Amino acid sequence: SSCPGKSSWPHLVGVGGSVAKAIIERQNPNVKAVILEEGTPVTKDFRCNRVRIWVNKRGLVVSPPRIG
């Protein structure tokens, strides 16, 4: 992607959502990480300053967080 800084975090799958949020925002200060339960409807727009963290009912990351 053409967004500045780190853009994906595949190693965070299985980690707690709040831990993942802290790591992502520390590694790329340009983004705001948002924790969402899988299945939550979201907009389809692409934004360089957003990372969606998809978690299951136990709050664990279920897919690699990435910019968008």
Rank of each mutant, 00 (worst) to 15 (best):
N56P: 04
R52F: 12
G39I: 03
R26M: 13
R52V: 14
T43Y: 04
C3M: 13
A20H: 00
S63F: 07
V55S: 02
P4V: 15
P64G: 04
S63L: 10
G68C: 09
P65Y: 00
E37N: 10
G17L: 01
P10N: 10
V55Q: 01
S18N: 10
P4D: 14
L12Q: 00
A33E: 00
G16R: 10
G17V: 03
A33D: 04
R58H: 11
R47E: 15
K32Y: 06
G39M: 01
V61N: 00
H11G: 12
F46T: 10
C3L: 15
K57A: 08
L36Y: 10
Q27W: 06
G14R: 01
V31A: 05
G59S: 04
P41D: 11
S8Y: 12
V13C: 06
I35K: 03
I53V: 09
S63T: 12
G39W: 00
D45E: 14
S8Q: 15
W9D: 01
G14W: 03
V62K: 07
R47N: 10
K21H: 01
K21G: 03
G39H: 05
V34A: 07
R50I: 15
N28Y: 10
A20N: 00
C3S: 14
D45W: 05
R47K: 14
L60G: 05
L12K: 02
V31Y: 13
L12E: 04
N49A: 06
V62S: 10
G59V: 00
D45T: 07
I67S: 08
V42D: 10
I67V: 12
A33W: 01
T43M: 10
S18H: 15
V51F: 00
Q27D: 15
G14T: 02
S63E: 14
R52Q: 11
C48R: 12
P41F: 08
L36F: 08
R52W: 09
P41W: 06
A33L: 01
G16Y: 14
I24Y: 00
S63M: 08
E25F: 00
K6N: 15
K21Q: 09
N56G: 03
L60I: 13
V55H: 04
K32R: 10
K32Q: 10
C3D: 15
L36G: 03
D45Y: 06
P4Q: 12
G17E: 00
V62W: 00
R52A: 13
P65G: 05
G68N: 08
P64Y: 05
C48G: 11
T43R: 09
N49C: 05
V55I: 09
R47L: 09
R50D: 14
V62E: 02
V55Y: 00
K32P: 02
I53G: 02
P29F: 01
W54I: 08
Q27M: 09
G39P: 00
R50F: 09
G14H: 08
V62H: 03
V51G: 01
K6P: 14
G68S: 08
N49M: 02
I35V: 08
G17R: 01
G14I: 03
C3F: 15
L60K: 08
I23D: 02
I24A: 03
V42R: 05
H11Y: 10
V34F: 06
V62Q: 08
N30Y: 09
R50W: 12
V31F: 12
G59T: 00
A22G: 11
L36V: 13
R26Q: 07
W9E: 04
V55G: 01
R26P: 01
K57F: 04
R58K: 10
T43A: 13
S7V: 14
R52H: 10
K44R: 11
A22K: 13
P29I: 05
T40H: 09
F46K: 09
K32C: 08
S8C: 15
T43Q: 11
G16M: 14
W9N: 04
D45Q: 09
K57R: 10
D45C: 05
N56L: 01
K44M: 08
W54S: 04
C3Y: 15
A33S: 04
N28E: 07
P4G: 13
K32L: 06
P64F: 02
A33G: 11
G16K: 10
S63K: 13
E37I: 10
I24H: 01
W9T: 03
K57D: 14
L36T: 08
V13Y: 00
P65D: 02
K21R: 06
V31R: 02
V19P: 01
P29D: 07
A22V: 13
V31S: 02
P29A: 10
I67T: 12
N56R: 01
P65C: 03
T40V: 07
G39D: 06
V42I: 05
P4T: 12
G5P: 15
G39T: 02
V19R: 09
D45R: 05
G68Y: 06
W54T: 05
E38R: 07
R66M: 11
K57P: 06
C48T: 14
Q27A: 09
R50L: 13
D45N: 10
S1K: 14
V15F: 08
C3V: 15
P65H: 00
V61Y: 01
V42W: 05
K6W: 12
V34C: 08
I53M: 03
R66T: 13
R66C: 10
G59H: 06
N30R: 11
W9Y: 09
V61L: 02
K6R: 15
N28S: 07
K6I: 15
G5R: 15
I67M: 11
V42Q: 05
E37W: 05
S8P: 08
D45P: 05
P65M: 05
L60M: 09
A33T: 06
S63C: 13
S2H: 15
S2G: 06
V15P: 01
A20D: 00
R58D: 13
S7P: 07
R66Y: 11
V19M: 14
E37K: 09
R52L: 13
S18E: 14
N56V: 04
V13N: 01
V34N: 08
I67G: 05
Q27L: 07
P4F: 10
W54G: 01
N28M: 09
W9S: 02
K6E: 14
V62L: 07
R26W: 05
T40R: 06
L60P: 00
S2Y: 15
P10S: 06
V51T: 03
C48K: 13
P10G: 06
P64K: 05
D45S: 08
K32N: 08
A33V: 12
S8K: 14
P29E: 08
S7A: 14
G68A: 08
L12G: 01
I53H: 07
E25D: 00
T43F: 06
V55D: 00
G39R: 03
G5H: 08
R58Y: 12
G68M: 07
V34T: 10
S1P: 05
R47W: 12
I67D: 06
Q27Y: 09
S2N: 15
H11Q: 15
I23T: 05
V61A: 02
G68H: 04
N30G: 15
F46S: 10
V62R: 03
P4L: 09
I53K: 01
F46C: 10
K21M: 04
R50Y: 12
S8H: 12
E25I: 04
S63Q: 12
A20G: 00
I24D: 02
V42A: 12
C48S: 13
R47Q: 15
K57H: 05
G16P: 12
V31E: 00
F46G: 09
I23N: 05
